[in-house]
Amino acid sequence: MEETIELEIFRYRPDQEDRPTFQTYEIPFRKDWVVLDAINYIKDQIDGTLSYRWSCRMGVCGSCGMMVNGVPKLTCATFLKDYYPDKIRVEPLAGFPVERDLVIVMDDFIHKLKEIKPWIIRREGEEKPIEEGEYLQSPAELAEYKQYSMCINCMLCYAACPVYALDNTFVGPAAIALAQRYNMDSRDQGREQREEIIASNEGIWECTFVGECSVACPKSVDPAGAIQRAKVGSTIDWYKDLLMPWGGKKR
């Protein structure tokens, strides 16, 4: 007899119901299947009405984050065999409003991403012309920020963050880590501009270092570390301003 596994999936159709329900599907169990394969099987073979996001199925596009048994996961990198024979519960990422079934509303994250100015900022007149070639950056300088540049915007870190769950005004792990990514880039001069958001009360200071963002992160970005390091940086600034109020501005 064929082995099977059950998936209990969060359903919500805004134009048909006021509150979500769970629907259970029984599907064949295959050792090399990931949770996304199972969901695709359901969509193709059992129930075409199930909605969710996915694309690259190789852990880099960041679309397919969901809660698997209450833990945020990229479903393309989460294997059924790690749960078999138990039932698997699949829900949309925690902390976000649900648009439909397993699809969350991303507006808040997109807004925050833009707000932290994730692009290279150069001081007026210090832009290097293209004809003069690349900015030099040593491998060591690259290594300073490389880790923080690996964020795929999958938002598992937000779903893992209890602070964000309780208060959506928190700028949140991925956005702060990305701000750090640019702050620590030797080509960038925009840290002071980003501090307006990052060092505000809704920024790094909301974080109590639960650390689950870094556990959830599938790309080892370590947003929790980024946030704590940003706290150290802002604290140094604060004392500099206190001790040298006349000249601390130029960082």
Binding site: Y12, P14, D15, R19, P20, G70, V71, A94, P97, V98, E99, V105, P162, A165, L166, V210, G211, E212, V215
Partner: peptide, 19 residues
């Protein structure tokens, strides 16, 4: 189209071992 905001229970801090 209205989105659904899941309630955050008071027991959030007891909901997962890491918390």
């Amino acid at each position: 189209m209205k989105s659904y905001r899941r309630p955050v229970p008071n027991t959030l801090w007891l909901s997962r071992r890491p918390y």
